[in-house]
């Protein structure tokens, strides 16, 4: 698919360039904005992978919430806009980053992706959910009539699920969350709640301070 290739390469360049910018740009505010670009590019990758629900959640959570918090923190703290001061950790940081990058490349090239395929096969529900084929068995095409296309709903399979690439993965993910993975899901929410309360407790001013 030529079109998808083009999009993939554009997104890749964007993501890598922007993430380099996040690290190299001195102005923290601009770095935070570049981080947003990285997140959006990653959302684009999700779209390419036909996981459009994940893409939207990526935008909603990472762009709409987390980046805003980062930007908020930068804006609220003064004396940052000039950029951080130079320190003597440049060489160490570069070394660590290079090592980590090399490790990632090494892992990528030496992984046996057939294992992953096997895992995917074994946990077909997850994979199916991400690609929107969860609980789907009807693959037949719709009828020839052009009148059908004036109906605004996307064509549906016999059991009510939608077919096609952009099909209904949302419901499938939801189903997974509250059926198969309900315990981890709830555990994460408890963890987040604990983190929030902890943050509040840390930030709280002692009464004698004020």
């Amino acid at each position: 698919m030529l079109f998808q290739d083009i999009v993939f390469w554009v997104l890749s360049v964007l993501a890598i360039g922007a993430s380099l910018g996040v690290v190299l740009v001195k102005d923290l505010f601009r770095a935070a904005l570049l981080l947003v670009v990285v997140f959006i590019a990653v959302a684009g990758f999700f779209v390419l992978l036909s996981a459009e629900f994940l893409a939207v959640v990526q935008v909603l959570v990472y762009v709409g919430a987390i980046s805003i918090l980062i930007v908020f923190a930068i804006v609220l703290v003064r004396d940052i806009p000039g950029g951080g001061k130079d320190n003597h950790l440049k060489v160490v940081a570069a070394t660590v980053a290079a090592l980590l990058g090399a490790l990632a490349i090494f892992v990528a090239f030496n992984s046996d992706f057939t294992d992953l395929d096997a895992l995917e096969a074994s946990n077909a529900d997850v994979a199916a959910a991400l690609t929107g084929t969860y609980n789907l068995d009807a693959t037949e095409a719709v009828g020839d009539e052009f009148e059908d296309q004036y109906a605004v709903a996307p064509p549906e399979g016999e059991d009510g699920t939608q077919i096609g690439i952009f099909s209904n993965s949302t419901g499938a993910i939801g189903g997974l969350f509250i059926r198969d993975f309900v315990l981890p899901f709830e555990a994460v929410s408890v963890l987040l709640l604990a983190a929030m309360i902890g943050a509040l407790a840390l930030l709280r001013q002692r009464e004698e301070d004020s």
Binding site: V36, V56, V57, L60, V63, G64, F166, S167, S169
Partner: peptide, 19 residues
């Protein structure tokens, strides 16, 4: 485009205006 995540899409995209 009839995205099957249309409403979520709207909510997600409008948060960009904050930036």
């Amino acid at each position: 485009a009839d995205l099957n995540i249309g409403i979520l899409f709207i909510i997600a995209i409008t948060s960009l205006s904050t930036f």
